[in-house]
């Protein structure tokens, strides 16, 4: 290792400063949001930079009661259910695709993976029609089912890669011990595949949690809305109470940032395993 030369030190300081400034442009708006949530409307309008004269907690309480609470619970329910269903259906599908060889298997593989290329946005109108004829419109299932369907191809793709790389010896041993194929799936394959399941669950959860367009079109009742659409609704509702709205934004962002900080490592690994978002 060589010693750091003065020139290198200067470069280091300059680059660090730049990195730090960039970090500030990301952190500052978020902090600004949290602070403005504590101010009154008038304060906000007279000086957008300022600190609150009195910290108004009421904004946060109001935002929570005006809708964030409901939206939050809805988002949790929709996301959790969708994630569970996505993982179950995709792992079964990947198990089938990697363990059995039918004549049509190749075709099925192309069929499933081809689904990755289809954008949900293209289908929003026909899906709306479909959900309506199935009497699912304006229920949480109107979100959950399309969410799951559109995530299956990608998650199956991820799991398939993992399942293919798994050693077969244990499965064979289990088979000799008299395990059925489902038993093998449940007791051997799934436990080994836990890392990829966790990754898939995180990736899917991130997409579902932030999904906006389906939530906008397939849900009518305010009591069923998820956070992203609910926030848009709040913007229309709190037209005259900006700081309450901002408090609502902060309330929606903080939990997800906390979750991110808590399981950052897993999320990072998951994202890189996937290499695809949205």
């Amino acid at each position: 290792m060589k010693k750091i030369s003065p020139a290198a030190l200067i470069i280091k300081i300059v680059v660090l400063t730049l990195l730090f400034i960039y970090a500030l442009t990301i952190i500052y708006p978020l902090i600004w949001m949290v602070i403005q949530g504590f101010r009154t409307n008038r304060e906000f309008f007279s000086d957008t930079w300022g600190m609150p004269q009195v910290w108004v907690y009421q904004n946060y309480i109001d935002a929570w009661n005006f809708g964030i609470r409901t939206y939050f619970m809805n988002s949790v329910f929709v996301t959790a259910t969708s994630v569970v269903l996505t993982v179950i259906t995709s792992s079964l599908l990947a198990f089938f695709l990697t363990r059995y060889s039918f004549k049509i298997s190749k075709l099925l593989l192309v069929f499933v993976l081809g689904g990755m290329m289809l954008s949900p946005q293209i289908s929003v109108i026909s899906l709306f029609q479909l959900l309506q004829t199935m009497n699912l419109y304006n229920t949480h299932w109107a979100l959950i089912i399309p969410y799951v369907a559109f995530r299956i191809p990608f998650i199956t793709f991820l799991m398939r890669g993992y399942f293919l790389g798994m050693p077969r010896e244990i499965e064979e041993a289990a088979f000799i011990d008299g395990c059925s194929s489902f038993g093998i799936f449940l007791r051997v394959v799934l436990p080994i595949a836990r890392p990829i399941i966790a990754t898939s669950a995180l990736l899917a959860a991130m997409t579902f949690w932030n999904e906006f367009m389906f939530g906008l079109v397939f849900i009518e009742s305010d009591s069923l809305r998820t956070i992203p659409v609910g926030l848009m609704n709040l913007r229309g509702t709190l037209v005259t109470r900006w700081t309450t709205l901002i408090a609502g934004l902060a309330l929606s962002a903080i939990p997800i940032i906390m979750v991110f900080l808590a399981c950052q490592k897993q999320l990072v690994r998951g994202l890189t395993a996937g290499g695809v978002k949205g």
């Binding site: 179950i88 259906t89 995709s90 079964l92 599908l93 198990f95 089938f96 695709l97 363990r99 059995y100 039918f102 099925l108 069929f111 499933v112 689904g115 289809l118 293209i122 289908s123 109108i125 026909s126 899906l127 029609q129 479909l130 089912i145 399309p146 799951v148 369907a149 559109f150 299956i152 191809p153 199956t156 194929s181 799936f185």
Partner: peptide, 25 residues
């Protein structure tokens, strides 16, 4: 034959909610 059951839920969802809407579009 029974193994096909593993593929059914996922396939059905993709078929009905991903491919069919595209045709409908």
């Amino acid at each position: 034959k029974r193994a096909l059951l593993y593929a059914v839920p996922g396939m059905a969802l993709v078929l009905i909610f991903v491919y069919y809407p595209l045709i409908l579009t």
